[in-house]
Write a protein that binds this DNA or RNA. Structure first.
Length: 552
RNA sequence: GCGCCUGUAGCUCAGUUGGAUAGAGCAACGGACUUCUAAUCCGUAGGUCGCACGUUCGAGUCGUGCCAGGCGCGCCA
């Protein structure tokens, strides 16, 4: 972007000062250039005077004044000034911004995508709910965050895989089978004791009903019956999960089965590696992982004294498998209640010979649903949770996804169902979508007035001289650094915040300035601005997975 | 007891990785539709950034210690 020009202006000033001896040639110059949050401060701001002050043993203010004098000569610069205790604020010539708009319009929105990843392969694992019950609202949040993060990383130069991991080798699915088995007996009129540690939700009754209605032949022996029902019930629930995800707009490249780790021998390979490196050791008849070689955490069991592997072992193997599939960076998105598990997994990655930075975590905090101003209780055990589907049916996909992306993922989220349902100004989703529709409406009117809106390439952007117009251009190009920051920090929520700010400036402009006017050249220039702006809004909404309506 | 997360306007939350006079939405109050969509805009009001020290030119941001809330600490899955 234009940041490199900004850097050039400063560096020219510094070099000039160095030639005259005001700054020694060996001065350290690790200054930063930032865009001040206060608009009146100009396009860019630098702290270079503060960095030089201790080296030159001079006041920052004096250094700033000296540099400003030298920067004023630059023909790239519109204005330069010293502010505060020694900040240097400066703005670029409007023509530079106008040219940037023109470039963006002709090269497309993709030209604003930063290349953060350099083609690196990233695997994002998310949702990964076991098929023992429908997805609840918390899974939905994880799904939205993971999906948008995947979109974001792909746009910023990463090769992205999306994966859903299923613990099918453990006991949970068998517990589901047993639950279904007992509900089935109930349906047949038998009185049964239904233990607390089985799945309590009504969906188990529905599954049992389905088994009966479909006339499925259940073996007479209890264990055989449970075998069959485990498979039946879990695959049925998995279908439901995939269906919900599809409706939510989330697609996975791969559903990875825990059992496949055993079939392919990766588990054995993992244990062999850990043994060989002296990271696994025997104690009390069990095999342990020596965690504290890498992280501050307790040692953990890999193989129990009864010979069974723990989940930890499959998880290490799973991550080894991810690396073996040539993924360089792994992102695991977990419910925040699993955070205690992070140190050991981080340790295991290092045990496999990788850097701890190669595995990154995103924790998803709980969602509290608010209805009629009061929290809706939810507890998996009692079966009274709100499913993703219920929320989806109630508020729709756009509002649902947008709301999930309005918070940092590791912060609690209060999801106000009534607000999300409202088609009014209180609902932030519409604020952004409305801007898109409004611009579309301008174009409809333009075409009706006989303006050729397909051919705006020749428009004279030099006519866009209003403060608001230059400001809009700056905000459009800022998409670049927003994507960059969001991708680096794995914070997809930044995109929704940016969209709100961008669109706010549009609405304000729209109310103040007419795009379609008597001056044909000016109208064309403004249409080009609107078209580019609309492109960014559409692109941003697409990233979040929310529709960009042409009419509202 | 130990560890992680959170604490910012009445409410819900941002805060550009240490920058300037801490921001937005909602709620409240007052204005703007004969002109491209009023699902919008303009204005007013609202603060001990949980508390206290420390690090430095500079702290909502980093460190230490408290306070409050949430979560986690098994040869469970």
């Amino acid at each position: 972007m234009l940041r490199s020009i900004a850097a050039k202006i400063i560096n020219n000033g510094i070099e000039d000062a160095q030639r005259s001896g005001s700054i020694p040639p060996d001065a350290r110059l690790n200054f930063i250039i930032e865009t001040p949050r206060e608009e009146g401060f100009g396009d860019y701001s630098t702290n270079v005077a503060f960095i030089l002050a201790p080296q030159l043993k001079k006041k920052p203010l004096d250094i700033a004044n000296m540099l400003v004098e030298r920067m004023q000569g630059s023909d790239l610069c519109q204005s330069v000034a010293v502010a505060g205790a020694g900040f240097i604020n400066f703005s670029l010539r409007g023509a530079l911004w106008q040219q940037l708009l023109k470039d963006t319009a002709s090269k497309g929105i993709e030209s604003l995508y930063p290349n953060v990843g350099g083609g690196r392969k990233v695997l994002i694992e998310f949702v990964s709910a076991n098929p023992t019950g429908p997805l609840h609202i918390g899974h939905g949040r994880g799904a939205a965050v993971g999906d948008v993060l995947a979109n974001l990383l792909r746009k910023t130069g990463h090769t992205v895989g999306r994966e859903y991991y299923i613990n099918d080798a453990g006991r949970q699915i068998r517990t589901l089978g047993r639950s279904t088995f007992l509900r089935l007996k109930e349906l047949k009129g038998e009185t049964v004791e239904y233990p607390q540690d089985l799945y309590q939700g009504d969906y188990v009754r529905e599954l049992a009903r389905k088994v009966m209605d479909e006339g499925i032949a259940v073996p007479a022996g209890e264990e055989e019956a449970i075998d069959l029902l485990s498979v039946y019930a879990s695959s049925h629930i998995m279908e439901g999960i995939k269906n919900d995800l599809r409706e939510f707009g989330v697609a996975f490249d791969n559903y990875f089965l825990e059992s496949s780790l055993y079939a392919s021998g990766v588990v054995d390979e993992t244990l062999a590696i850990l043994r060989e490196r002296g990271i696994a050791f025997e104690r009390d008849g069990a095999l342990w992982f020596k965690t504290d070689l890498f992280e501050k955490d307790e040692d953990r069991v890999l193989v129990k004294s009864d010979g069974e592997n723990t989940y930890f072992t499959s998880d290490i193997a799973y991550h080894l498998d991810k690396f073996k599939r040539s993924y360089e960076v792994l992102v695991d998105i977990w419910g925040s209640d699993h955070h205690g598990y992070i140190p050991r997994l981080r340790a295991s990655v290092q045990a496999l010979g990788r850097n701890k930075e190669d595995l990154r975590f995103l924790l998803i905090q709980f969602v509290t649903l608010i209805k009629d101003g009061k929290p809706v209780g939810m507890s998996t055990r009692s079966g009274e949770f709100t499913t993703l589907r219920e929320v989806l049916d109630e508020v729709g996909r756009d509002a649902c996804r947008y709301f999930f992306l309005m918070r940092k993922s590791d912060a609690h989220l209060e999801f106000d169902l009534d607000l999300a349902k409202k088609t009014s100004n209180e609902n932030p989703v519409y604020y952004v979508q409305y801007a898109h529709a409004r611009i579309e409406s301008i174009f409809r009117n333009a075409r009706e007035a006989g303006i050729n809106t397909d051919d705006l390439a020749g428009a004279d952007c030099g006519l866009l001289t209003l403060k608001e117009e230059l400001d809009l251009i700056r905000w459009i190009t800022r998409y670049h650094s927003v994507l960059e920051g969001a991708a680096r920090s794995l914070e997809p929520h930044r995109v929704t915040f940016y969209l709100m700010e961008l669109v706010g400036r549009f609405h304000s402009y729209y109310n103040k300035t007419r795009v379609l006017g008597n001056d044909a050249a000016l109208t064309r220039a403004r249409l080009l601005l609107m078209s580019t702006l609309q492109g960014v809004i559409r692109d941003g909404l697409g990233l979040v997975g929310v529709s960009a309506p042409e009419k509202m």
